[in-house]
C-alpha cells in the first residue's frame, strides 16, 4: 500500500514532499468519519432498545427527548422476569435451541463425514441436493407442513400443532443442510493421509471420525454449532404458524404476540423482553466472533 501511494503521489504531484503521508492521513480520517456514521446507523436501534427498556412508564409517554433516560429504572426487567409467561418463553426457546443443536450436529457431522470421505452410490448428487435444500426457504414449506401435521393427527392421534417440542422436529430442516454443507467443506480439507494412517492402524470408520476428524475440524464444528443455535433461537415463522397457547410459545413469537396487547403497547417491557431475547446470540457472538464469522463466510467460500 505504501508503495502504491508513493507511485500515485509521485505521478500526480512530483514536487511536494510530505503529501503522501498527508493523503494517507486524510483518507484515514474520512474512513473513520464514515465508519462512525455507519456505526451510528447500525447500532441505533439496539441502543434505543436499551434506553427504552430503562425508562419508567411515565417517561415513555412523555414528550421529552426520547433519546435520553431521565429516571433510569430496572422496573421493566423486574416486571418481565417475575411474569411466568416470559420465563416460559425463555425456557421453551432454550430447550428447543439446545435440542436442535444436538440433533443437527449428530445428523450433519456423521452425514458430512460419509459424504466427504466414504462416498457411496449417489453421494455426490446427495451433497448437491443438501445444498439445494438449504436454498428452499421456510416460507415455502410452512403451509404443506401445517397440512401434514393435521394428517399425522388424523392417522396416529399425535397432536403436533401447538406444542413447543414440534419445533425440535422442524428446525433441523433449516439447520442441517447448511451445517452438513460446511462440514463437508471442512472435512474435505483434511489431508487423506491422516485417515489412511488411521485405517492402517486398524481404526474403524467411527473411530476415524471421532478420534481424527472431529478434533481436527473442531473450528468448523464450533462455527456450525453457533450457526445452528442462532438460527433456532431467531426462527419466527414456524412457531408463529404452529403454536398459539401462551405456554407453548418460544421467545420471539411470545414477545410479539403476548406483549403487544391490542392498541396498548407496553413499550418498556417489549424492549426489555427483546433485549433479553437478543442477549444469548449477542453474548455468543461477543466471545466467539471469529468462529461466528467463519461460519458466516463458509457457505460461499468453501465447497
Amino acid at each position: 500500500m505504501a508503495n502504491a501511494a508513493v507511485a500515485t503521489a509521485g505521478a500526480v504531484r512530483p514536487l511536494r514532499y510530505g503529501s503522501i503521508s498527508r493523503d494517507r492521513k486524510w483518507a484515514l480520517r474520512w474512513s473513520y468519519f464514515f465508519l462512525t456514521l455507519f456505526a451510528i446507523f447500525f447500532l441505533m436501534p439496539p441502543f434505543y432498545m436499551l434506553i427504552t427498556s430503562l425508562k419508567p412508564k411515565e417517561e415513555i409517554a412523555a414528550i421529552t427527548n426520547p433519546w435520553w433516560v431521565y429516571a433510569p429504572t430496572l422496573d421493566n426487567f423486574i416486571e418481565l422476569l417475575t411474569q411466568n409467561a416470559y420465563m416460559t418463553f425463555f425456557r421453551n426457546s432454550a430447550i428447543v435451541s439446545v435440542c436442535v443443536v444436538i440433533v443437527t450436529m449428530l445428523i450433519s457431522v456423521i452425514a458430512a463425514f460419509s459424504l466427504a470421505r466414504m462416498k457411496f452410490w449417489g453421494s455426490a448428487t446427495l451433497a448437491t441436493g443438501v445444498f439445494l435444500t438449504y436454498l428452499i426457504p421456510d416460507t415455502l414449506l410452512f403451509i404443506p407442513l401445517f397440512k401434514m401435521m393435521s394428517w399425522v393427527r388424523d392417522t396416529t392421534g399425535i397432536e403436533l400443532v401447538n406444542h413447543w417440542w414440534t419445533m425440535i422436529i422442524l428446525y433441523p430442516t433449516l439447520t442441517v443442510p447448511f451445517c452438513t454443507w460446511i462440514m463437508i467443506g471442512y472435512f474435505a480439507s483434511i489431508p487423506k493421509e491422516l485417515d489412511e494412517a488411521a485405517l492402517i492402524d486398524g481404526a474403524t470408520w467411527m473411530q476415524t471420525l471421532t478420534r481424527i476428524f472431529i478434533p481436527v475440524a473442531l473450528p468448523g464444528i464450533i462455527a456450525a454449532t453457533i450457526f445452528c443455535f442462532t438460527v433456532s433461537w431467531a426462527q419466527f415463522l414456524y412457531p408463529l404458524a404452529f403454536t398459539t397457547s401462551t405456554t407453548e410459545l418460544v421467545l420471539p413469537v411470545g414477545i410479539v404476540t403476548t406483549l403487544i396487547k391490542g392498541d396498548v403497547f407496553n413499550w418498556g417491557q417489549i424492549m426489555a423482553g427483546a433485549l433479553l431475547g437478543a442477549a444469548p446470540p449477542l453474548i455468543i457472538y461477543a466471545f466467539l466472533m471469529d468462529y461466528y464469522i467463519a461460519g458466516l463466510t463458509a457457505g460461499a467460500t468453501k465447497g
Binding site: 433461537w233 419466527f236 433485549l275 431475547g277
Partner: peptide, 11 residues
C-alpha cells in the same frame, strides 16, 4: 445481523 430479526424489528 446477530440480533434475531424479530427482536430488532420490534425496536
Amino acid at each position: 445481523w446477530v440480533i434475531p430479526a424479530a427482536m430488532s424489528t420490534l425496536s
